[in-house]
């Protein structure tokens, strides 16, 4: 007990981690030396270079453009100036884009998670015949490049009056993303304790009751992870929203920023402000 006692107050984690403080004490601190510090400084320099673009965006988004022209991009602004951000925000009606992105990402996440649960329930609990093949086909939906689907989807959605509507894009993205969710949930449900299901069946539970009262509560944490993934993926998705949501009032945050990159190049701080606005919700 006494040997393991120091471990918990450093890192309360896996046994793998617990070994590390011991090593640190044994030989490392005494051997940091010049080479150790050199490596640390080099690495910290590399890491600083990685986040340098964020820093530049941050300081320049709030810098008056006159000061940018006079002092260049590196200097820290002497005053906080919100004009660039406000100009961008109002200019592209960013509130509208945020609302669109929230609606689209939220509904895609919920619908895709529901679809995933239903399909995975059939495959994982129902043990359908040929389920390995069914899963493989579903995975095609996830790996196939969207370029190979986009023109037919463009044609079909125009015929069904779903072109340039959030509803159409919601359905398409929900189906595409549920493929991944089905794959993940099916493997979780495949190892579901069969005795529990057997017991429920013997008690006369219908399939829907099994789904709602047993499977749903026990997979809640996986579903929460999936909903988060789907939300982020949809938020960041660019290609299909770009093609299927042409009008400004339907655009998402990603699409509006992408479309903007061609304009505004005359004002030096506008793009910094735009990228800050894109970073903030993340």
């Amino acid at each position: 007990m006494t040997t393991t006692a120091p471990a918990p107050d450093t890192v309360p984690a896996t046994p793998v981690r617990r070994q590390k403080p011991a090593r640190t004490n044994r030989n490392a601190r005494s051997r940091r030396g010049i080479s150790g510090w050199t490596v640390l400084i080099l690495l910290a320099g590399a890491a600083a270079l990685m986040i340098f673009p964020f820093w530049l965006a941050l300081i320049n988004a709030f810098k008056p453009s006159t000061e940018y022209i006079a002092d260049g991009p590196i200097g820290i602004p002497t005053q906080l100036d919100f004009t660039a951000i406000i100009d961008f925000w109002v200019g592209v009606n960013f509130n509208q884009k945020l609302l669109n992105s929230v609606i689209l990402s939220g509904s895609v996440a919920l619908i895709a998670a529901t679809l995933s649960l239903l399909s995975a329930f059939a495959i994982g609990i129902g043990r359908l015949k040929g389920r390995v093949w069914i899963l493989a086909v579903f995975m095609l939906a996830f790996t196939i490049p969207q370029e190979a689907l986009v023109y037919p989807l463009f044609v079909l959605s125009r015929e069904l009056n779903l072109y340039d509507s959030l509803l159409g894009v919601t359905i398409i993205l929900a189906v595409l993303q549920s493929a991944f969710g089905t794959y993940m949930l099916a493997s979780v449900l495949g190892s579901f304790p069969m005795e529990v299901l057997e017991a429920a069946r013997l008690d006369g539970a219908s399939r829907f009751q099994i789904l709602r009262l047993i499977v749903l509560p026990l997979t809640r944490s996986t579903l929460a992870v999936l909903v988060t993934f789907f939300f982020i993926w949809t938020w960041n998705d660019f290609f299909l929203p770009l093609v299927l949501l042409p009008s400004a009032s339907n655009q998402t945050v990603s699409v509006s920023l992408g479309a903007l990159s061609g304009q505004y190049t005359s004002d030096p701080t506008a793009l910094a402000a735009a990228s800050m606005a894109g970073i903030l919700p993340a």
């Binding site: 609990i125 359908l128 939906a141 398409i172 595409l176």
Partner: peptide, 17 residues
Amino acid sequence: GYWIYLLPGAVGFIAIV
């Protein structure tokens, strides 16, 4: 009886992919 739960996903897959 579980095939019916595959239906929404399968219809979506056929229509969208």
